[in-house]
């Protein structure tokens, strides 16, 4: 190996270690017995592996409830987003109507606006219709997504217009074309978008913190806060186990879909 390569690999390794360290520590602590956590010397690996922390996190806390909420909220958001985004992006890519480019320009402009800007009007609106502190408040604001519209419109635009015309001649309605032709042909992009969406909303703390106060509605990150505030105190072990449980679904999901995810991004030529 050339010295250059060694230096580059060394730097990358240090970077990777820095990023991974908190996760390794989290996993390590979650497997340590209570007595071993609060010691004066740092040991990376537990001397004695125990699953008590996980057992406690699953049975004596509300973490299963938080996980369930996470599944309900992210799942509903994704389904709604696809139900809105697929027909809309199809229309923006393959139908002619007045103001089409203006609309697409609006979508691109909306990409630049962070959610925090619109959060307050949405909060006030939901408060007016008395929907705060409900699943609706957690789900509805995300039903339309500029990022999804943009990503899928680009993917739909790649479908040759001959195929769309052929489908029209074959008797498909516009909605059927969007779902039966466009959707399967854009599957890699749809999967990439789904991963983005699920990751973003599973990990989102900001909006659940604002829109809900009821612990039984808490999504996983919000739940961790309740857990830390009320129960854990010095009980770090179950807290770490809980955090590991909450992160695990995303990591596993990502590993399973890794190939398609990268394929989807490569197809759109878009990086985030």
């Amino acid at each position: 190996m050339k010295p250059n390569t060694i230096i580059i690999l060394g730097l990358l390794a240090i970077g990777a270690a820095l990023v991974l360290l908190p996760f390794v520590w989290l996993i390590s602590v979650s497997f340590k017995p209570h007595a071993e956590i609060f010691t004066t010397n740092v040991t990376l690996l537990p001397h004695q592996i125990t699953l008590t922390n996980y057992w406690k996190a699953l049975t004596q806390t509300d973490i299963p409830r938080y996980l369930l909420n996470g599944v309900i909220v992210t799942g509903s958001i994704l389904i709604l987003q696809l139900a809105v985004t697929v027909p809309c992006s199809y229309a923006m890519a393959h139908r002619n109507f007045p103001g089409r480019s203006l609309l697409f320009g609006g979508v691109v402009a909306a990409l630049l606006v962070p959610f925090h800007v619109t959060a307050i009007p949405i909060f006030i609106g939901l408060a007016e219709v008395k929907l705060l502190n409900s699943y609706t408040a957690l789900i509805l604001p995300f039903a339309a997504t500029a990022f999804g519209l943009f990503l899928l419109r680009q993917a739909f635009a790649q479908i040759p217009s001959d195929i769309i015309d052929a489908a029209r001649v074959d008797g498909m309605s516009e909605m059927v074309i969007a779902w039966r032709i466009g959707f399967p042909l854009c599957a890699p992009t749809v999967i990439a978008f789904s991963i983005f969406s699920v990751t973003a909303h599973w990990n989102d703390l900001f909006w659940p913190l604002i829109a809900t106060t009821d612990p039984s509605l808490a999504t996983p990150p919000r739940g961790i806060l309740f857990f830390r505030d009320e129960e854990s105190g010095d009980d770090v072990g179950p807290l770490m186990a809980g955090a590991a449980l909450i992160t695990a679904p995303l990591v596993i999901g990502f590993l399973l879909a890794q190939k398609r995810f990268i394929q989807g991004l490569a197809n759109t030529g878009l990086k985030k």
């Binding site: 040759p160 195929i163 498909m172």
Partner: peptide, 20 residues
């Protein structure tokens, strides 16, 4: 009327088969 109502068959230069 829409293409389907006319029941006209059209073959495209690119064939436009549904790849999936």
């Amino acid at each position: 009327k829409s293409p389907a109502e006319r029941n006209i068959a059209l073959m495209f230069q690119s064939y436009a088969l549904y790849p999936h």
